[in-house]
Nucleic acid binder design. Structure first.
Length: 428
DNA sequence: CTATAACTCTCAA
DNA sequence: CTAACGTTGAGAGTTATAG
């Protein structure tokens, strides 16, 4: 029987910001989504003030002034770097690990059953705290779903207050009692909709779901929730994925800093997003067989005329060439654009992704040498941008300053990845 | 009618 | 000063379409 652990950082983005602002140690801190729109992370103090996840920041202004809440724009470079450091530490504790998200990793603890697993969990969180400076919790169980649940228990004091919960150490009676006290909505894979439907059926606790008939759950819901039921019964259905598979689709979309009316601005924005998407595509040595572009007005202003067009365009020849993708993307924008709407968001998606070189012809194709040159050019651009920072070199259509660029008024410095932004360095 | 494609829904971080 | 509400990806299930 496998043993899964999961390490999950507490309030990850907020903890990253506090790490470099010690004076904020006991202050309420929130981190905002792109465009400084919604609250996506809250420190313990901010949670205590009742700020819900996803709350629009502009609605919290009174509360913020009242309690001197400190808000940061999302600083993804900083968070990504700290996340990498956390993973480095975790790798010291197990050779088999799945980086599940920026702040969560599953650990295989197979073959560690001779250890006191809860104690091992405490060592893990202490080491991460000491070496990286970020707090986290550890959950342990016989399945991924149970490990996630254990993590929830560890975070919320269901099982002591040492930040670790090992469900494998509980007797059947204690597990029963614990599952009876946890709401079914806390289970991994049970979101708002499914929660409501389960409630209607009288399934309100984790124990209720665990004891439900899998066949019934499958017929009334899906094979996915059936697997969840089995996992809650200790039958492992979800395995550790140590290598992330290549993406099947690649998206890039943004809300605009302010409403956009002009076609030219939309063309600019979509060219920029398409360039980003193409970079990601090349990072996995892929080519795309289709692209999709969408535009959106602001759905939060229902009184204004709404327009949410999108169009998918199959590409005659799968490619990762920024110039080709941007050209097609811009053609689509021109087709979709209607004068008179206040556009608030746009995005692109690349799909039909295959490994490059597999596409068509290649060896005897008369185009192959021009394709190779295009590939060299793209690689050169990617290299320069990687060395000198995103946007150092770009196509002429991507200009510099734009009304559509997102707001990021409250950014902290990139303390760990940019010398220029270290406080005091400039002054010297 | 079947196989596939396209689209919708749900979830997660 | 005002106005101001995220992004990315997966997978399953359903519906539309092609042959």
């Amino acid at each position: 029987m496998p043993i899964f652990g999961i390490f999950d950082n507490n309030n990850f983005y907020a903890s990253c910001e506090k790490l470099f602002a010690p004076r904020l140690k006991d202050r309420p801190v929130v981190v905002l989504s792109n465009n400084d729109g919604c609250v996506v992370a809250r420190s313990a103090e901010a949670k205590a003030l009742g700020i819900p996840m996803g709350a629009p920041w502009f609605k919290l202004q009174d509360l913020a002034r009242q309690h001197e809440i400190v808000a940061f724009s999302s600083n993804y470079e900083l968070y990504a770097d700290l996340s990498d450091r956390v993973v480095q530490v975790l790798r010291l504790f197990t050779p088999n690990l799945e980086v599940y998200s920026i702040d969560e990793s599953f650990l295989s603890l197979d073959g560690f059953s001779h250890l006191d697993l809860a104690d091992y969990g405490r060592q893990i969180r202490e080491r991460v705290l000491q070496w990286v400076g970020l707090p986290g919790c550890v959950g342990i169980g016989p399945t991924k779903t149970m490990a996630k649940l254990a993590n929830h228990c560890a975070k919320n004091g269901f099982a002591g207050n040492d930040g670790v919960c090992n469900l494998l150490a509980l007797s059947a009676v204690d597990l029963d009692d614990l599952f009876g006290r946890i709401k079914v909505g806390e289970v991994w894979g049970v979101g708002r909709k499914i929660d409501a439907r389960l409630q209607e059926m009288g399934i309100s606790s984790v124990r209720d779901l665990r004891d439900a008939d899998p066949a019934m759950i499958r017929s009334r819901f899906s094979v996915v929730l059936e697997r969840t039921v089995r996992e809650l019964n200790g039958v492992s259905c979800l395995s550790l994925k140590e290598v992330a598979p290549d993406k099947q689709q690649i998206m890039c979309s943004r809300s605009f800093g302010e409403p956009v009316y002009e076609l030219d601005d939309l063309l600019d924005a979509v060219a920029t997003y398409m360039s980003r998407a193409a970079e990601k595509l090349r990072q996995q040595q892929g080519v795309a067989a289709a692209l999709m572009v969408f535009l959106q007005t602001n759905p939060f202003k229902p009184a204004e005329p709404q327009y949410h067009p999108s169009m998918t365009l199959p590409l005659p020849d799968p490619t990762s060439d920024t110039r080709v993708l941007v050209q097609w993307g811009l053609r689509v924008v021109k087709r979709l654009y209607r004068r008179g709407y206040a556009y608030k968001k746009a995005g692109v998606m690349l799909s039909g992704i295959q490994p490059e070189g597999m596409s068509r012809g290649s060896l005897f194709d008369s185009q192959s040498s021009t394709d190779a040159k295009a590939g060299n050019l793209m690689a050169l651009m990617d290299g320069i941008n990687q060395k000198w920072g995103r946007g150092a070199i770009r196509l002429a259509t991507e200009q510099q300053h734009h009304p559509w660029q997102m707001r990021r008024d409250r950014m902290s410095p990139r303390y760990t990845t940019s010398w220029d932004e270290l406080p005091g360095v400039l002054a010297k």
